[in-house]
Simulated scan of single mutants.
Amino acid sequence: MFYWLMKYVVIGPILKAIFRPWVVGRRHVPKTGAAILASNHLSFADSIFLPLMLDRPVTFLAKSEYFTGKGIKGWATRMFFKGTGQLPIDRSGGKASEASLNTGLQVLGRGDLLGIYPEGTRSPDGTLYRGRTGIARMALEARVPVVPCVMVDTDTMMPIGQRLPNVVRVGIVIGEPLDFSRFHGMEGDRYILRSITDEIMVALQRLGEQRYEDVYASTVKNRARPPRPEPVPAQID
């Protein structure tokens, strides 16, 4: 009920009226049954507009920070993400990554749509970066298709670090589902997982014609951070 109110009565109509989002290829999203929606990630707004523009609910594994923000913006973000069924996850790696994967498999096990950003984080500059193999493992373990989705101009609407959005049209391009049934039972093979992930990223690149770089987005972000200042040794007189 809360999901219906948020999407169709409260926030959804307002966002549609302001940003006039468009969709191409909505027919490629399965009408029933579990599937993974694999999307590029340009902006915080991606997790809002993709579920908003589809007929079926989509559960994203959203970073936990989206549920802990302060002030009016933090409250509104938290309410929207909870209202649309998004799940907070810890992205610190290790056991947290395994827990996130299991959470995603639970969503797929219910026969629902699961939204995933294979890059693992937002692109810092609009480039499409190397995908992480968790998506391939989920697709094989759950035995579900992967539907490539490309977000368009959400980074222009809401650039990283900007507090208020620019009023521009945003779009979504959805491609044909990718079938990896030929690899069922091979989810323990890291070379297969890498091959599947790369195939997904190629589909995204062709669909959105983004520039692609075969490096992780997190690596690029770390390179851009200024180095920490060296500690000044204590002076001994």
Rank of each mutant, 00 (worst) to 15 (best):
M1V: 10
M6D: 04
K7N: 05
Y8H: 13
V10E: 01
I14T: 07
A17V: 00
R20K: 14
P21K: 01
W22A: 07
V23Q: 09
V24Q: 15
V24N: 06
R26E: 13
R27L: 01
H28T: 06
H28S: 06
V29C: 06
P30F: 01
K31F: 00
I36K: 11
I36A: 07
A38W: 02
S39K: 03
N40F: 07
S43R: 09
L50K: 07
L50A: 13
P51T: 02
L52G: 07
D55L: 03
T59L: 00
L61V: 06
A62C: 06
S64Q: 12
E65G: 08
I72S: 11
K73F: 10
W75N: 09
A76H: 04
A76P: 03
A76I: 10
L87D: 01
I89K: 10
D90F: 05
R91E: 03
E98S: 03
E98T: 11
S100W: 02
L101I: 14
L101M: 12
G104H: 05
G109F: 01
R110F: 00
D112L: 04
D112T: 02
G120I: 01
R122A: 08
S123N: 12
S123P: 13
P124A: 09
L128Y: 04
R132N: 08
R132D: 04
G134S: 08
E141A: 07
V146T: 09
C149A: 15
V150W: 12
M151I: 14
M151R: 07
T156N: 12
M157L: 15
M158L: 15
M158A: 14
R163T: 14
L164C: 09
G171K: 11
I172T: 14
I174L: 07
E176R: 15
L178V: 06
S181L: 05
M186C: 09
D189Q: 01
D189C: 01
Y191I: 00
S195P: 00
S195K: 15
I196R: 08
D198E: 14
E199W: 00
V202M: 09
L204K: 05
Q205G: 10
L207I: 08
G208L: 04
E209D: 14
E209C: 12
Y212I: 02
Y212G: 09
Y212E: 03
E213P: 05
A217V: 03
K221R: 15
K221T: 06
N222F: 02
N222H: 11
V232R: 14
V232C: 02
P233V: 03
P233T: 01
A234Q: 12
I236A: 12
